[in-house]
Computed example of a mutant assay.
Amino acid sequence: MDTTDASATPDTGASAPPRAEAPASPDRQEAAAAPARPVSRRIAAAAREEAEAVVRGAWGDGERRPREEDVIDLLLVVSELVGNAVRHGGGLAAFEARAVDGGVRLDVSDHSPVVPAAASGRVPFPARDQGSGYGWPLIARLARDVTVRRRPGRGKTISVLVPVRAADPR
């Protein structure tokens, strides 16, 4: 997955000169009025789409369908890992999802060599009054075989297996 954002531009502090444009159609006006999604949401959304395409491609051939709750678990884990890479890891360096025996293997690379303390063992859920801190407990509950590999001078890769089972026949 390409993690570059072609729409991102550096903030130089200078404003661009105004441009004359033709009046926008009602469809364009509505789209222009909608707030732009932050880069992290677009990256996470693209990673979720890729992971879902992998699981549907591997398990979606007629009788062998994936359990929908397993697909939802996969998408939650993708969101958490990619979101953590963007927010805490200096940005997403690479993302890979591939079908393997028993599920989907995710490899999420970022630019930080710091290994999350929560990645090394059992993680309790945060106190109820905290607004964050749920990511690693969710990953620990939904994924298996969590490993963290440092990439010398280039950050780290977190690899997990998210189990995906075949749905019951209809």
Rank of each mutant, 00 (worst) to 15 (best):
R56H: 04
G57N: 04
A58N: 01
A58M: 04
E63W: 07
E63D: 14
E69F: 04
E69I: 08
E69Q: 09
E69S: 12
D70I: 04
D70T: 01
I72C: 00
I72W: 07
D73M: 00
L76C: 04
L76Q: 10
E80T: 03
L81W: 04
V82Q: 09
A85Q: 04
A85M: 05
A85G: 06
V86Q: 10
H88T: 01
G91R: 09
A93Y: 01
A93R: 15
A94N: 12
F95G: 07
E96V: 14
E96H: 11
A97P: 00
R98K: 15
R98Y: 02
A99H: 13
V100L: 08
D101V: 08
G103N: 07
V104G: 05
D107H: 11
D107A: 15
S109F: 10
S109N: 10
S109Y: 11
S109H: 11
H111M: 11
P113C: 12
P113K: 14
V115R: 15
A117T: 08
G121L: 04
P124M: 04
P124W: 03
P126S: 06
A127F: 00
A127L: 11
D129V: 06
D129R: 10
D129A: 09
S132L: 08
G133F: 05
Y134A: 11
G135R: 02
L138I: 13
L138Y: 05
I139Q: 09
I139N: 13
A143C: 12
A143I: 06
A143M: 10
R144M: 13
R144L: 14
D145F: 02
T147S: 15
T147N: 10
R150N: 08
R150T: 10
P152D: 12
P152A: 12
G153A: 06
K156T: 00
T157F: 02
